[in-house]
């Protein structure tokens, strides 16, 4: 919030992350296996950030990896997992079961209402639902409010203002205009409700180029932008690449095993690479190119998911 001046905002991923304080409330863009801000996630871990409060809708490897690295204090998402396909989020699950993280599980509509309250400059908004759900027990900060017009009792949820929103987009310009493909998930709401918005983009192009594709999030909401090809890997960023199901499966197996296996994953794919250039070299140009071949035929597309 607070509009950003119109200037060149290009930075490196490391610079964008350096400003994030331990204990910060971080909004994660994208959802499930799509457009998660993975380059930022890897850099947060490399820089040893601690006690983070993560906020999001439905998430997977972003939250799980941060929890695995011990960077997280509180998780406030509507879901963390790998869907029916790869199952529960191993590190998140272990930390939740042992009490090593605060589980503040939330609900999509509730988070949306809390962000809208911030956008509207209001201290809270009422939501329908939640009453009678044990989700209430996880949120002592919620209250009840009686409608002055109808007498209806609703749950009041406080405005949520993330310190920083981490977004990934396929396309952007140096001023921070971003183009997204649907689903936008909560990215637009995070962009206008967060104190600071930083983004990675697969391709930095001219302003005309982003405008031609369509600006989803405007430059005046964005504080910094870094060009990181495949910055969402192993999640998808259409139209450029599908998600890397093999890699996610490798991660989930290592995280399930925990101990040395999980440490090995972190060592290889996070600590063992200095930056995203080395990360892409490690994954390999051939594999990354494969993820872009979904356009060739339905059989190629299906082949990525077998």
């Amino acid at each position: 919030m607070g509009f950003q001046p119109q200037r060149d905002k290009t930075v490196s991923v490391a610079m964008a992350v350096a400003d994030i304080a331990d204990g910060a409330m971080i909004a994660l863009g994208g959802g499930l296996s799509a457009r998660l801000p993975m380059a930022f996630v890897r850099e947060l871990i490399r820089q040893g950030k601690q006690d983070l409060h993560l906020v999001g809708s439905a998430h997977s490897i972003d939250v799980d990896l941060l929890v695995a690295a011990g960077a997280v204090r509180r998780c406030e998402e509507s879901y963390v997992g790998f869907e029916q396909d790869l199952g529960l989020a191993p590190a998140y699950r272990r930390a939740a079961e042992s009490g090593n993280i605060e589980v503040a599980e939330s609900c999509c509509v509730t988070i949306l209402a809390q962000l809208r309250a911030t956008e509207l400059g209001l201290p809270f908004l009422p939501v329908r639902g939640v009453r009678g759900s044990d989700i209430l027990r996880l949120h002592p900060e919620y209250a009840e409010v009686t409608c002055p017009f109808t007498g209806e009792v609703l749950v009041a949820v406080p405005a949520l203002k993330p310190d920083v929103a981490l977004l990934h987009a396929p396309l952007g310009d140096r001023y921070g205009n971003l183009h997204l493909e649907q689903p936008y998930v909560l990215d637009e709401r995070f962009a206008s409700a967060s104190a600071r918005v930083v983004a990675t983009v697969d391709k930095l192009v001219s302003t005309e180029g982003v405008a031609a594709a369509g600006v989803t999030i405007p430059a005046h909401l964005v504080a910094a932008v870094a060009e990181v090809p495949f910055g969402a890997h192993p999640t998808s960023c259409y139209p450029d690449y599908a998600y890397d199901r093999q890699h996610l499966s490798t991660y989930v197996k290592a995280a399930q095993a925990g101990g040395e296996d999980l440490a090995g994953y972190l060592k290889t794919f996070v600590y063992g690479v200095a930056d995203e250039i080395e990360y892409r070299e490690l994954i390999g140009g051939d594999r990354l190119a494969e993820l872009g071949r979904w356009t060739q035929s339905t059989e190629d597309w299906k082949g990525l998911f077998r």
Partner: peptide, 22 residues
């Protein structure tokens, strides 16, 4: 029990806790 850490933590409800109401 959820107050002492879950015995098994599942993924979470997504939008269900609001949507099931309406």
């Amino acid at each position: 029990p959820s107050d002492t850490g879950f015995k098994v933590k599942l993924g979470g409800g997504g939008g269900g806790c609001n949507l099931a109401a309406t």
